[in-house]
Amino acid sequence: MDKQYRLKRTLKQLTGLSALALFTCTAAQAANWRYAHEEYAGDVQDVYAYKFKEYIEDNSDHTLKVYRFGELGESDDIMEQTQAGILNFVNQSPGFTGALIPEAQIFFIPYLMPTDMSSVVKFFRESKAINEDFPKLYAEKGLELLQMYPEGEMVITLDEIATTPEELNNKKIRVMTNPLLSETYSAFGATPTPLPWGEVYGALQTNMIQGHENPIFWIESGKLYEVSPNLIFTGHGWFTTAMMANQDFYNDLSKEDQTLVQKASDYAFEEILEHIDGLADSSLEKITNSSKKVTVTRLNDEQIEAFKERAPQVEDKFIEMAGDSGKALLKQFKQDIKDL
């Protein structure tokens, strides 16, 4: 099915009204805006979306319709719909945006980001790379970057306990369709296996793959622990996501509505930071209470060092993929982290 046909079909599914009537918004005319994200009801992106919606609707006559994972397709689909103007807002992680914006893959360089909650929050608040450099990169692709925010520490699930790169040899680990993430797991000794999210549970269940990575709340929400019960905390990074608008739509808004959208994204950001504080611990408790098969392994400093030693080759690959702009962004990231 080609891209143009999918976009037309989605537009018909959304409404029988014209796109102009749906998406044109002025200060004098209330509009119904549309927002899609990648997760399920109650997950982090869903909480963010509904906080954004709450602010918009409490402070204007506009309404906002939120679409969750699968309702309009997968991550690639909702990005295409946003770029085409069918959707006004989209929440998509850099794991999928990397094909569009190679520099966004920087979040998949292992052991680059801090992993303790307070440092992560400070980084997202103050980082020049996050708050100044990334909006310019997204704008080049017709997207108005409104917010980047963390969701949780990445955790590997596996068919058996592993604490060294050697123990990951020949293990097929599901990754998002992201070349740098594949490079990370190759460096870790595993066999990276790109798969759409909808196929992951079944692939783990049938041993087509032996593991995957995700924040712990997503492992709990998707019940991945049922088919991949060994949880391994490697400390290699946090899952980051980005919320953005179609740039033409945003630029056509009145100054009043642009301010409204900015304030709504800031409000949702503050709310989501509060939401994720303690979320990992509560999700892990739910998992361990639900299954006696689950094991939890937290690598010690010496074990982490064995994985960290392999990170430089991923940095080299990132610079190869992203070129001079990626090299400059990586330098700024490291400076921002140093400034913490």
Rank of each mutant, 00 (worst) to 15 (best):
D133T: 12
M1F: 10
I86F: 02
E140I: 07
F217A: 15
V296I: 13
F107L: 02
A162N: 03
E151Y: 03
G16P: 06
Q105L: 11
L7M: 13
E167F: 10
R125E: 15
A36L: 08
S254P: 06
Q258P: 04
D43H: 02
V227E: 10
L7K: 04
D316E: 15
L181H: 14
T259S: 12
L11R: 11
L299N: 06
Y5E: 15
A322R: 06
L143D: 10
L195M: 15
T206C: 09
T288P: 09
T10S: 10
A129G: 04
M176T: 11
R298C: 00
I130K: 00
F96K: 04
G95S: 07
H37I: 09
N169C: 05
Y138F: 15
V66F: 08
P192V: 08
E166F: 05
A84C: 02
T240A: 07
F69D: 09
I56Y: 05
I78F: 04
F124L: 03
Y5S: 11
K12C: 06
Y250K: 09
S254H: 00
L137D: 08
D133C: 01
A162T: 15
Q147N: 13
R6V: 14
A19W: 10
L224H: 07
G142W: 04
I101G: 03
I130S: 01
Q210G: 10
L260W: 00
A190W: 06
D252H: 12
A268V: 00
G202Y: 12
Y40F: 11
D43A: 03
M1D: 12
F69W: 15
F108I: 08
R68Y: 02
G70K: 14
P150W: 08
M117V: 02
N169D: 04
N178Q: 12
D324T: 14
P179N: 14
T26F: 01
E39H: 01
E153F: 07
L14H: 05
F333A: 03
E256S: 10
T15Y: 06
I109K: 07
E132I: 03
F107S: 03
E166M: 13
E54I: 01
T295W: 00
D43I: 08
S283L: 04
A311E: 00
F333W: 09
T97V: 13
G42F: 11
V294M: 05
P150H: 05
E126M: 05
L279G: 10
S283I: 04
S228H: 09
E302Y: 11
A84P: 07
G42Y: 13
Q335G: 00
M208P: 00
N230I: 07
D277A: 09
G222V: 09
S75M: 12
E302P: 05
L14G: 02
Q303G: 07
V296Y: 11
L14M: 11
